[in-house]
Amino acid sequence: MSNTVFIFPGQGSQKVGMGKDFYDNSALAKEMIETASERVGFDFKHLLFEENENLEQTQYTQPAILLVSLIAHRLFTEHSTVAPIALLGHSLGEFSALSATGAMDYLDAVELVYRRGLLMKQACEGINAGMMALLGLDDESVEAITCKERESGKKVWAANYNGDGQIVIAGNKDDLASLESVFKDSGAKKAVLLAMSVASHCPLLISAQAPLETYLDQWMKDAFVAPIISNVTASAYQAKTEAKHLLSEQLVSPVKYKQSILHVEDSVDMFIEFGGSVLKGLNKRITQKPTHSIVDMKSLEEVLALF
């Protein structure tokens, strides 16, 4: 049996129609979507399957992605005995991993990330928060530039290490926009503001930490069937006390996705991504190990056939 790591996508992987094939062809998926709708008080069928503005709002984006990821995971585990050697996710995806490893009921996880999104939105109200994608600069250059600019009063931080030459920064939107030419003069091929109204994984979210820890303490169990690789440290944890601290720190710390993949690369034969294919694309830039994505019933069957 091959050594497998389960991975879960974060914000940016959402799109209208995600999970529809699961809903149409699986009684389990239909039940999970309908039960989750009852839990949080809004209709996931409308959110996921019909054109709407809510899917791009973080308090709705987060539970939508998590729910589809956990449906893909449940359908896979219903037909496979493959046990991962570890799990990891990109930002929000770490909460999907937490549920998939048994540390949180999926309905509790849906409500938790809905509330996490609200906390993030509230933390960023009135501060003109935003994020910017950078292509073509190495980590050290981005860190040096953002550090220098913070010393001059600008609010800008490295937020996501997605791969070599692919970093997202977060902070005040005007400050980010003012640095576009600085990054390009330093060798960036692109410096593009993202359509986001929150500044994830930077100190602007500090007010969300304490209430998030309260929710984690309320809903999380100390029952991990496999370790999770932390976004904050790129190292494994497998206990509630560690999870509470690390997932709180994740709000204000950069996502070390590239480092997390490299941490497990030598011990893994393949990665399986549940509910999206964005991480499959990122992994092509990081590792030679294959990544297989489960996004519908056809891809589910294809991945099951590998074992």
Rank of each mutant, 00 (worst) to 15 (best):
S152W: 14
G171T: 04
T58S: 08
E140F: 11
V168N: 13
W157Q: 06
G93F: 00
Q59S: 09
S91Q: 05
A170E: 06
G89M: 02
A159C: 09
S152E: 08
A86M: 14
I127P: 11
M132L: 12
F95E: 06
A64K: 15
L66Y: 07
G163A: 12
Q57H: 10
E143K: 06
M104N: 01
E140C: 07
D105M: 15
D139P: 03
I167L: 08
I85G: 04
A86F: 14
L66N: 04
L137G: 15
L87E: 09
T146G: 11
G126M: 03
S80V: 13
R116T: 05
E111H: 06
S69I: 00
G126V: 08
Y114K: 11
E111D: 08
G93K: 02
C124Q: 15
Q122C: 06
V68P: 02
G163Y: 00
L137S: 06
E94D: 15
Y60V: 02
T61F: 02
C124I: 04
D139H: 06
A123Q: 01
P84T: 04
S141K: 13
A109S: 07
F76Y: 05
Q59P: 13
H73E: 08
A129Q: 01
R116V: 04
N162L: 13
V110E: 01
D139Y: 09
R74A: 14
E94N: 15
S80M: 02
T81V: 12
T81Y: 07
R74S: 12
T81R: 08
S152T: 09
P84I: 05
D105Q: 04
K155I: 09
V113K: 03
L75R: 00
C124P: 04
T58D: 01
A109K: 03
Y161Q: 03
D138A: 12
A86T: 05
N128K: 15
V168S: 12
D164W: 09
A86P: 04
V113D: 00
I169L: 13
L119V: 07
V168K: 00
L134T: 07
G126Q: 03
V82N: 10
G93Y: 01
Q62T: 00
K155Q: 15
E94F: 13
G171N: 03
H73N: 10
L92T: 01
L135A: 15
K148T: 10
N128V: 03
Y106N: 03
C147P: 11
T81E: 07
L137F: 15
D105T: 05
N160Q: 07
S91C: 11
T58C: 01
D139E: 09
K155S: 09
Y161G: 07
L88F: 11
M120E: 02
I127G: 15
G126D: 04
A144Y: 08
G163T: 09
